[in-house]
Nucleic acid binder design. Structure first.
Lengths: 332, 332
DNA sequence: CTGTTAGCGCTTTCAG
DNA sequence: CTGAAAGCGCTAACAG
């Protein structure tokens, strides 16, 4: 079942069938109709590989993430796929597992597959890799990495803004001893958040003493331990670098019979779907992942030879739920 | 940069290059060495589409799941991809969103891409679709759907066994009023669990009065409401059709100031990663998703023209954590 | 063991 | 507006 059979049945050339399928306007409605009915009669489906081989475009997009089991990613992936599907693109998702070597491998595999674009949604990414993709002439979009350039778009997340929203919320509730649970500093996404915390805390004349900073490894267990370590410092509120560590902190406080937000307030970061189901529900800074996905896809398929990549900016949103309240100390 | 350039540089024919790449043993180590060095010198990467076109095999596997944002799936997907990567396969994941029409679309897209196999890890699946894939000659593996046949393997999950483990655990703790939170009965996976509960409860001479059965929609919110509805019936323990609804039940009890497992025991199903982090940690029936993924992949790539698909069986494992304890009533 | 050659199924000039 | 024909890059007989 190939294009020739269709051509034969419709009594036209294969070229005409091809044009019809690709909706070229250089085909008379009448002939197009003949072709379509032949296509339907034979239940013909074009061979995508032959198509790719001869046209050079695969209609496949690559999506590189760190780890699908990290609750940050499923929403992103789902949104990306949904939009891609609408645009008739297939998606190949690959996990780097935060491993640079594996990242290189992922990119090469995608390049071999002649993908029409690569979205790199992990910040652990060597600049040299980006260059390689650019050399291959494949559009690329990244999250917080480098400056947009030829066929290279970048989506900037406003972490500082998010941290600022969180801190101002807390300051508004009269908190004055604010602790921070960091993520792994080998990860850029964690560094950026930490730096933002330092900067904004200082802006607000809050102490950023190192005793108020603990490492939470961006995990529930890590957040749990970090909170325990922070407790002797008597913070009135804790800001966590991501929701998982905030959830760990919540557990630690629960175990110590401390009440949230009565005794201490907690703010997370990311707004993973679970954060609306913690006890109490977590106040957190939302990263609009569906929007990021949509922008990434848009950036990829709108990148043409002519215009260079763009720099997009996405802002966060503070979601106030039940884990924050007035400062206990100031009330007393 | 194509195979011809490599052939030219290595002073051999393109056929030899092809053979070398495909590790045919019909190539002298000496010539192979020449070829490899040419390949390296030119940084040559074979065009996968040309390869697919001429060989008929794409080295791509399709993985169909219901919804990547359902915490059941990420582990499964990750394991599948990891194993696929080892075997040099690419994976295209598609979400059906529990929608039969969309499922048909997913399958067609995969078929168009000439995938070398399709793993359908959602039970919402019309038998006619399976037949279609079989007609296309593409290996297929499903989860709890139909009987294995030509190029068609099936992985059976022992839900009854899992439910039995849970119920016997509870009976061993002297529970005698066991409630069940069902999943949406339009989903086969939920029906199967419900039926197993009915059967095994009867085996154990437990009442299965409809007042002890509530609908939890397989979600946290649903589990919450279901638990509230169940409360007047004074169950001593509750078995939920999945972990999400068990977590909802946990929240409801917390809200009502009831202690788990002091006042009531809760058992979930699936063992999603979050269930080890609830308060208290959830006792649940684990579905070994990584093993399922591994088997699925194995089934797909071992399916040859010669031997028919196989029927695999995977058993569950009861993970006893902190949400179950001796029956309060029998203690008093 | 290696080379020649005919496709795989489609797109895309180039003519007409 | 439509057709003929030349590839796209690789694999797999078939010879030798």
């Amino acid at each position: 079942m190939d294009i020739r059979k269709v051509a034969a049945r419709a009594k036209v050339s294969t070229a005409t069938v091809s044009r019809t399928i690709n909706r070229s306007d250089a085909v008379t409605p009448a002939t197009a109709a003949k072709v379509w009915s032949a296509i339907r009669a034979l239940d013909y489906h074009p061979n995508t590989h032959a198509r790719t081989l001869s046209s050079g475009k695969s209609q496949i997009l690559g999506l590189i993430i760190s780890d699908i089991t990290n609750p940050f990613f499923p929403d992103l992936v789902k949104a990306f796929e949904t939009v891609a599907l609408e645009r008739h693109y297939e998606v190949i998702v690959t996990n780097t597992e935060y491993n640079p070597e594996r990242t290189v491998l992922c990119v090469h595999r995608l390049l071999n597959r002649k993908v029409d674009g690569i979205a790199i949604m992990t910040s652990e990414m060597e600049p040299s890799l980006i260059e390689e993709v650019q050399r291959a002439g494949v559009p690329i979009v990244t999250l917080d990495t480098g400056k947009a350039g030829k066929k290279f778009s970048n989506i900037k997340l406003d972490y500082s803004g998010g941290i600022r929203q969180a801190i101002q919320h807390l300051v508004g509730l009269h908190h004055d001893r604010l602790a921070f649970i960091r993520g792994p500093q080998r990860l850029k996404s964690a560094q950026v958040r930490y730096n933002a915390y330092i900067r904004v805390a200082k802006e607000n004349a809050l102490t950023t003493s190192s005793s108020l900073i603990a490492d939470g490894e961006h995990s529930i267990e890590g957040g749990f331990t970090a909170m325990l370590n922070l407790l002797p410092q008597k913070p009135t509120a804790v800001l966590a670098s991501n929701d998982l560590s905030a959830i760990g902190a919540l557990h630690a406080l629960h175990n110590k019979n401390l009440h949230v937000p009565g005794d201490i307030s907690i703010v997370g970061f990311d707004d993973i779907s679970f954060s609306r189901h913690t006890q109490p529900n977590l106040t957190t800074v939302r990263i609009p992942r569906a929007e990021v996905a949509r922008l990434a896809l848009e950036a990829l398929i709108s990148t043409s030879e002519a215009e260079p990549g763009k720099e997009w900016s996405v802002s966060t949103e503070l979601v106030i739920r039940m884990s924050t309240g007035p400062c206990a100390r100031s009330r007393s």
